[in-house]
Nucleic acid binder design. Structure first.
Lengths: 392, 392
DNA sequence: CAGATTCATTCATCACGTCAAGTAAAGATG
DNA sequence: CATCTTTACTTGACGTGATGAATGAATCTG
């Protein structure tokens, strides 16, 4: 058993499986009375008193102020709450040319953020910039105390998983077989885990977002590419060698626009924001147009932009339907830097979703989740957080 | 804890989690020494002697004859083996017009089989025919003793799962919300579970077939339709309301042949054996041709048949690639009544598989598994078997 | 033959969670 | 208003089920 919960002044909390599951249950499903938690986890009430005591003594759990809640018969329950401020995590998202980093607490709330352009992809330089970003986020707590950094998460596009400190392949950074996790861990002296960027985002939804309460769901992101993260049976699907959720080049229509790889009509060529921009700007011969300009044109009813976004929505609907047909999730969450385009292509999306959903099923429930620019880095922090609580 | 292992003469074996997992490990991964099983399951060696003793005493496990195996240093191991004959299961597959049933032992070996045309879909008649089939398979052990029937499994196309005795929807049988499991259980006095037919087949591969040793794989079946079963993280994926693996109507090409639902170029319209037959027989204006006739024509190089089978292989490759891209399995198993067609379209299949596999991955490993006509019913038996051992 | 090595068993021990009993704190009831 | 009912929580004895250490068993090695 690890020393996940240890702290100056208090003795480290030794963890049993029951303690882990209780703590995670309380973290994810909000304040819960001991009795309720016992029911949910199929434990005895007495087990809950015993299990929660060390957490309360060490300050990781606290009894909620007796809120005069719903009047009910019997002794009022005493909800327990995780003190999110007692732990701190840093999440870092690496892209080809920039580094985003956030510091969060145990509840994945962002308390500080920073970003910087990457000098280059030389490992020493990247490592230096990572260390610097961590220092910036954790340095000098002006005034009050702050808990020590518990873990660091780093996410990037490519095949990485928390169980392995090595980046196997990352096309955009030009890395392969790079032990980035170990390197950072050595440099900052804090446990460090790697993860695929989309799967890290999926973890955010699983514990702190729309996925809470669902044992299976899919997250589909739209932006520079199309991503897909899957949770099935309460577990994130990693795939062999971290290669699950590769929906970017799904064949939509073999006469459609072309992607960088020469696929005619693949999902990416229809849905990714660069492809949409290229398509609209190219057709109108206005290379200055940004993606958001194109979106504005579509909103204003410009026929070219409208058509491009309708086709994007339609392709996205087909992607979602395909994923849903194969994996049968309870819910699909739509997110990513470009989700805000959903508003202008919702009809096309829903039509395609219904059309491609298997005839024996009803279309999967879809929720659209607005996207903050630091969400990618937050995902990395949640990867670190999950790893620390479940395996630390 | 259940009474999975109980028997006249011996006291019932009470099961702990460790006992369950040890027994299943020995069943699935063949004869194994106690020491080896202990390593695999992360148990202490002493736990293994303790856990296996009651099974040995009750006759469910036995020590293998000291085979003069690989000469190795140290005391020779004493492999333990499941006595498969000590339990018996019946599996039943229902189609629109026929009932297939098999009796198997604990190792899913088929010991008896029977089939009969369904009179109609009236529940009382179907129930009667099910009971009769079970009686035929379990009646009068000529001569020797036979273990009593442990459980019955029933599989059908539609949304059914072992955790629920109700058939929610089965288009081909015209049923909905029918508590078939409870009805059969009452009629024959033996635990009865339902399952989707493709998922039942997937269980066979998981415990007794190509899936052994893989924590994630996909099974794709071709025949009257296209099916897909998924195992991810050692667990069969059921999907919400049992609706996972619906690849039949995956869009391949919106100018292709049409399926019964009016989808142009969906997978089913390319790959299912009736569609292939229709296509070849229709083009040649020879309505008498059977599927196997068409296959023979293709094998002989007949241009029409060749083309149809090439397109089928190509579509199938795209289906496999799509499933693999999304779920990242270690392995894809190809099976079903019509898998033997693989031989004539292997090239087209492999080409399409490579073409549609995401560029950052290598194509998934594919194995072709010949299909016996009673395999569907065997799947149902394995559903019963798994349910009995894991939850009974 | 003693030594090394691996497998298997025995038995004391112990960790972790349940059970039973009791306490606490409210609303319901007459 | 005293009492009952209901639900929440706590406490300490207990038991189940696994571990660890010591031992024995069976083989190859030199």
């Amino acid at each position: 058993m690890g020393r996940v919960f240890s702290q100056a002044g208090t003795s480290p909390v030794r963890l049993t499986d029951a303690m882990r599951s209780v703590f995670v249950e309380l973290l994810v499903h909000g304040p819960l009375s001991r009795a309720e938690a016992a029911r949910r986890l199929a434990l005895s009430p007495s087990a809950l008193t015993k299990v929660t005591k060390p957490f309360i003594e060490a300050g990781y759990l606290r009894e909620q102020a007796a809120g005069e809640g719903t009047a009910t018969v019997g002794r009022p329950s005493q909800p327990l709450e995780v003190d999110a401020s007692r732990m701190s995590f840093v999440g870092i998202k690496l892209t080809a040319d920039e580094l985003f980093a956030v510091r969060t607490d145990l509840a994945a709330a962002v308390h500080a953020e920073t970003s910087r352009p990457l000098i280059d992809h030389e490992i020493d330089n990247v490592l230096g910039q990572i260390v610097q970003a961590i220092a910036d986020l954790t340095g000098d707590p002006a005034g009050g105390e702050r808990p020590p950094l518990s873990a660091v998460g780093i996410s990037l596009a490519g095949t990485a998983t928390p169980s392995d400190p090595v980046v196997h392949t990352s096309p955009f950074l030009g890395w392969s077989q790079l032990p980035l996790g170990s390197l950072v861990e050595e440099a900052v002296g804090v446990p460090t885990v790697l993860d695929n960027d989309v799967r890290a985002l999926t973890r955010v939804q699983q514990w702190f977002g729309e996925g809470v309460g669902h044992s299976s769901f899919a997250l589909i992101t739209v932006g520079a590419g199309i991503g897909c993260g899957l949770v099935i049976g309460d577990r994130l699907v990693t795939g062999q060698a971290g290669a699950a959720g590769l929906v970017g080049h799904l064949a939509i229509d073999d006469r459609g626009p072309m992607c960088e790889l020469g696929h005619r009509g693949c999902a990416r060529a229809y849905v990714s924001s660069p492809a949409i921009r290229r398509s609209v700007a190219g057709t109108l011969d206005r290379p200055d147009l940004t993606f958001d300009d194109c979106l504005a044109l579509a909103r204003d009813g410009h026929p070219v932009a409208r058509r491009v976004f309708d086709e994007a929505g339609s392709a996205l609907g087909q992607v979602v339907a395909t994923v849903a047909n194969i994996t049968g999730p309870e819910l699909v969450i739509l997110s990513g830097e470009a989700v805000h385009m959903y508003a202008v292509c919702a009809d096309a999306f829903q039509t395609a979703l219904a059309r491609h959903t298997h005839w024996t099923s009803t279309p999967v429930r879809v929720v659209v989740k607005p996207f903050a620019f630091n969400e990618w880095a937050r995902g990395a922090a949640v990867t670190a957080l999950q790893h620390q609580l479940l395996h630390g």
